[in-house]
Amino acid sequence: MTIKEIREKAREMLKGYCRVCPICDGKACRGEVPGMGGIGTGSSFVANVEALSKIRLNLRTIHDAKEPDICVEMFGKKLDMPILAAPITGSSYNMGGRISEEDFIQMVISGSKEAGTIGMCGDGGDPVFYESGLKAIRNENGHGIAIIKPRSNDQIIKRIKEAEDAGALAVGIDIDGAGLITMALMGQPVGPKTKEELKALISSSSLPLILKGIMTEDEAEIALEVGASAIVVSNHGGRILDHTPGVAEVLPRIAEKVKGKILIFADGGVRSGVDVLKYLALGADAVLVGRPIIHAAFGGGKEGVKLILEKIAQELKQAMILTGCKDIKSIDGKVIYIMIILVE
Rank of each mutant, 00 (worst) to 15 (best):
G42F: 03
K66T: 15
P292R: 00
A248C: 05
M339F: 08
K334Q: 11
V20A: 00
A86I: 09
F45Q: 03
G38Y: 05
C29V: 12
G213R: 01
L201D: 02
G167M: 14
A266P: 01
K54I: 06
I160P: 02
M81Q: 15
V335L: 06
A255H: 05
K334G: 14
K78R: 15
E8Y: 07
K199F: 06
E225C: 05
A166Q: 13
S203Y: 03
G172N: 11
I173D: 13
P82G: 13
N48A: 03
H236A: 10
G260M: 04
I328W: 00
T61M: 11
A286E: 02
P208Y: 05
M186E: 15
I118L: 05
V287G: 00
G90S: 11
L288S: 02
M36V: 13
G237S: 11
R60S: 09
G213Q: 00
M1A: 14
L79W: 10
D165I: 05
K54Q: 14
K257I: 07
K278I: 06
G324R: 13
L84S: 01
K259Y: 08
G167V: 12
G268M: 00
S204M: 01
L209D: 07
I23W: 09
I214Y: 06
I340M: 08
Q314L: 09
G324E: 00
M320S: 12
S203L: 14
E12S: 12
D242E: 10
I118F: 07
E114C: 04
V247L: 05
M1I: 07
G300F: 03
Y130T: 13
E196M: 05
S229P: 06
R239Q: 13
L52W: 04
I39A: 06
G96I: 00
G42A: 02
T244A: 15
